[in-house]
Design a protein around this nucleic acid. Sequence first.
RNA 1: GGUCUCGUAGCUCAGCUGGAUAGAGCAGCAGCCUUCUAAGCUGCGGGUCGAAGGUUCGAGUCCUUCCGGGAUCACCA
Length: 595
Amino acid sequence: MLENILKETLLNIFKNDYQLEIDPELISFQQTRAEFEGDLTLVVFPFLKLIKTNPVVLANELGAALMKQSQLIKSYNVIKGFLNLSIRDEYWLNWLKNNLERTGFEQSVIDNSAPIVIEYSSPNTNKPLHLGHIRNNLLGWSVAEILRANGGNVVKVNLVNDRGIHICKSMLAWQKFGEGKSPENTGVKGDKLVGEMYVAFDKAYKAEQYELIAKGYSSEEAAKKAPLIQEAQQMLLQWENGEQETRKLWETMNNWVYSGFDLTYRRLGIDFDKIYYESETYLLGKQIVMEGLTKAVFFKKDDGSIWCDLSDEGLDEKLLLRADGTSVYMTQDIGTAQLRYDDYKAGKLIYVVGNEQNYHFDVLRRILIRLGKSWADGIEHLSYGMVELPEGKMKSREGTVVDADDLMDEMVQTAQKMSEELGKGAGLPHEAAEQLYNDIGLAALKYYMLRVDPRKTMTFNPAESIDFNGNTGPFVQYTHARIKSVLRKAVDNQLSWQSNTSLSVELMPKEKAVLTLLHNWNEILKQAAINRSPALIANFLYDVAKSYNQFYQDNPILRESNADRRCLRLQISELTARMLNYAAGLLGIRMPEQM
RNA sequence: GGUCUCGUAGCUCAGCUGGAUAGAGCAGCAGCCUUCUAAGCUGCGGGUCGAAGGUUCGAGUCCUUCCGGGAUCACCA
């Protein structure tokens, strides 16, 4: 790495010329701003505390010393306290050559002895997937891929929330209003059908509440006393008691949902190594809670409910088991965490869950630590921001929830429409064209969702937000396709550019600009892993594509007459295409050969 | 009310552990296709980085207070 080499050299200079052991942290390089000459800039201000002198004088001294000691430096200039270094072209050309020989662009910076288990998606089985899930799924999948690309031993898991009062509501509604409907006899996607039942329950439940309120009950009483909710609670109890008919209906309806989810996941291009079901882990959770009770980590209230008192840590009491013995969210999560640790002996358990659950995960961690689980330190809540619409949060009762399947359909249709208007893909066979529209539509969606810092709340404007021009997925795809087209033509013209002979050319500004951006890759990939941020990869893609397009605009490639320079430009093009392809792959974005 | 979090151009977002005159895209205006893909490129206009203090040679970035938005503090998940 260029900067590390220069850092070493600089440390030696301080040691020999100034008799100083400098803290390496003080040495910071940054990319030279475009308006100045140079590639790398050293900020000398931090050294002034140790060496009492004028910043310009020191910068000049360091520049001269670096020139003498390092072959890498071609020239330097000083502006105020900034030492701008120009790196020799040989370095960039050599770097280009070495990277063209790479087969992949991964690296090993993560200790891979203990697995990293990352959970994402975590759907409930009573409702179809929506826009919020899309952010979650893309983020989780992409972070997993990024960690893998850094050498991590990653296990992707999904936790399906297949039990609880919510699914009982859908089941009850199906019994009462379902009229025997099934995905088979209606053609409706399974998760959508179950979702309709849930809505039907809600509607009938609301009606009962209004009726009770009309009779003089308070709204709180009405919510509790409505016959439907009582029936649903009864059903949950039956379920936990293993009552056969309830279990059978539950199984049937959940399977409808799973086949629906599968379609959505496959279309989104995300996958899992293992799927956990809460129905299989909540008993373990209960067991651990009971153990905690005997160890007096928890306590029991008069009504029989079990709690954990966290008030000495500035938090509240937390319910772990209801008075009727049924489990709550926390009970399940304690069980799943334990099971997941037992399965993999994971060093890290990452949960990709919305920031609305920050408190929940804080509590989960503390409870597990109180229970003496040493692995609880490895629990990390990858907390991402909500997706909002221009008019605010999505609300199911106002019908503003953006359905995942519908959104993907819409994106792909738009891609097709735009492609046809532009006359692209005209020569393609039908199937290839379909594939292309699909790739473009999904790229637009994925890039749009992933380019934003995961921690931030983001706004999604269905009408105008998703674009195909400018800072978008299709822009990056277009750049790739353009390069591929040039390379195909080069092959047709029997030009070869893969040979390793050293080129004798002086780099031109736009050529070097592309190379210096590509040169950042290893650091970007590392930072993306550390910060769990696919957004850094997305920004890299955009910067590279933008820079390449500027290069492309200004410099002829195939029409360049100087053979060495033509070769150089083809090599830059090839490496750009390959790195775009690799980096986009980490976001789940496919790069078409042509578009 | 307590805790957490966010506030950068009309809109959507960048801005790495503090570094030079705060950047993109969209939208608006003006240009560039007899030459490698115009989903591209070039230029113009648009900002007291929510406000005020503080630390520092240097603050969009760190600290304090305040203002504004969001989340959470459930026998919902």
